[in-house]
Design a protein around this nucleic acid. Structure first.
Length: 442
RNA sequence: GCCGCCGUAGUUCAACGGAUAGAACAGCGCCGUCCUAAGGCGUUGAUGCAGGUUCAAUUCCUGCCGGUGGCACCA
């Protein structure tokens, strides 16, 4: 990178470390500016001016402490040459070669449909993975499925009734309003865990397969490819053992549950239950187990978990526990959280409950972009990726599909138009080493 | 109550502690019409409040105000 070169050049010339090297906002101020001490500014400027390196065109001094560097034309010429030669590979690097990374994201629940909120981890997680890949790392994208739990029981219960609507939504409604249904659902939940009822097992199997099929359709449309899948049911076993092994050391018994008092290690954290008073591992224990399973399935240098902001504090506690249980795993684990996606104009058709389904948003955007799905997907991804990942996003349907302004549609269209202009100009990229002939081409 | 995150033009977003806080859309003014579906140029306009640290603060620290998320058996 040119910045490293400049830094080295400054370090060698001036013998000073850690001088701020910034990119001026104003073009006339040069391509880079070094900020030096006002006491040595004059002599630093003279030294840099004398020691000019081959990639520096000129050096000027903006008192009291800015020394502005203008890069040479040769540098820009070489950059252009590199861009044309490398084509789509421009910008790739090898500096993370051999580095093994796992990026876990999206993590839907069986029996629940993907909704628009899932686009956040999908876009952010897969992009993060792409950035690692682009830098040469060996990357696995992982998805952690919640395959068992009350949501499964609600859906299975509903599947036993003959209904047309979404079983999970129907089951949830019944669970909240109908006492006898609630009892039955709890009963079914047990049966799912114990595999004690063949009818329940069959419905569970059919329903979960249907679920996964639905997930895969959305992943495919959105360009997501998972390499590894993990399941809450497997994490539960490993997690329970891990927690029980560390009772007394990390965890303690309290009111029949096994808890972790994180505030003893960091006053800003709080206590959380890892195994509840019925002996069932909670999400916390499962995540602990998951960390171990991950490292066994794919020994890695870094494990990134992408979740929503609301799990931030939860993860701080979890990571504090992981640090005590397994310092090595803790060092490799990083939690990244994203904001919520909501629609600016809340009106949109929704087939299920009060959430907007993932595929419905694609259809809605598609209907506004002349029916081209690639354009629609690009519009959605761009709306998410254009801003800071921790912040909430107001998804404005109109703006997202606008051919003006900061939108994916605008970018794709501008690119198409640029290609078209090139085509009509009969311009063809020069062969290697012929850059000089293209100078002056607008 | 405690902990975290957020607060920047009318709106949606930018800005490794650095120079004159950038864009986009909307607005206003002038000019124009056929390069896939965007017309061009110009222009108005912002750091929630009060302190502090620093040569330099949107950025770091303290307090306040406003919004939001989390705080034992849910995931």
């Amino acid at each position: 990178m040119i910045k490293d070169k400049i830094n080295n050049w400054i370090k060698e010339s001036l013998g000073q470390e850690d001088l701020a090297l910034v990119h001026p906002k104003i073009l006339e101020h040069g391509d880079y500016s070094v900020i030096v001490s006002d006491k040595t500014a004059n002599q630093d400027f003279e030294i840099l001016k004398k020691n000019k390196s081959e990639f520096i065109e000129s050096v000027d001094f903006a008192p009291p402490r800015f020394i502005n560097l203008h890069l040479s034309k040769e540098f820009f010429k070489n950059s252009l040459k590199e861009i044309i030669e490398k084509g789509e590979n421009f910008g790739k690097s090898e500096h993370a070669k051999g580095f093994k990374v796992m990026v876990e994201h999206t993590d839907p629940n069986y029996f629940k449909r993907l909704h628009i909120g899932h686009y956040m981890p999908m876009a952010i997680g897969s992009t993060l993975a792409n950035v690692f890949r682009w830098n040469g790392a060996d990357v696995k994208e992982a998805c952690y499925y919640s395959d068992v739990g009350l949501q499964a029981a609600k859906a299975v219960w509903a599947m036993k009734q003959e209904i047309k609507e979404d079983p999970y939504v129907y089951g949830t409604k019944a669970y909240d309003t109908d006492e006898s249904a609630k009892k039955e659902i709890i009963e079914i939940n047990k049966k799912i865990y114990e595999h004690s009822d063949s009818e329940v097992d069959a419905l569970y199997k059919a329903g979960s397969e249907e679920s996964v099929k639905g997930f895969n359709e959305v992943y495919k449309k959105f360009g997501i490819n998972f390499d590894l899948y993990f399941y809450e049911s497997e994490a539960a076993k490993v997690g329970s053992e891990l927690v029980r092994k560390n009772i007394g050391k990390v965890f303690e018994n309290s009111d029949g549950a096994v808890i972790f008092r994180a505030e003893d290690h960091d006053p800003k954290l709080h206590t959380r239950v890892f195994i509840n008073s019925e002996g069932i591992p909670t999400y916390e224990a499962k995540d602990l187990g998951l960390a171990q399973i991950k490292s066994e399935k794919y020994p890695h240098d870094l494990s990134v978990v992408v979740t929503a902001n609301e799990q931030k504090d939860y993860f701080r506690v979890l990571l504090a526990a992981l640090e005590l249980v397994s310092p090595e795993l803790h060092k490799k684990t990083k939690h990244i959280s994203h904001g919520t996606l909501r629609l600016a104009t809340g009106k949109m058709s929704s087939r299920t409950g009060n959430v907007i389904l993932a595929e419905d948003l694609i259809e809605e955007v598609k209907s506004r972009t002349k029916g081209d799905e690639r354009v629609a997907i690009g519009a959605i991804k761009y709306m998410i990726l254009r801003q800071a990942i921790g912040n909430d996003i107001v998804f404005d349907l109109e703006k997202s599909v606008s051919t003006e302004g900061d939108s994916g549609v605008y970018l794709q269209y501008a690119h198409a138009r640029a290609c078209s202009v090139l085509e009509k100009s009969k311009f063809s990229p020069p062969a290697k080493g012929e850059m000089s002939q293209t100078e002056g081409v607008r």
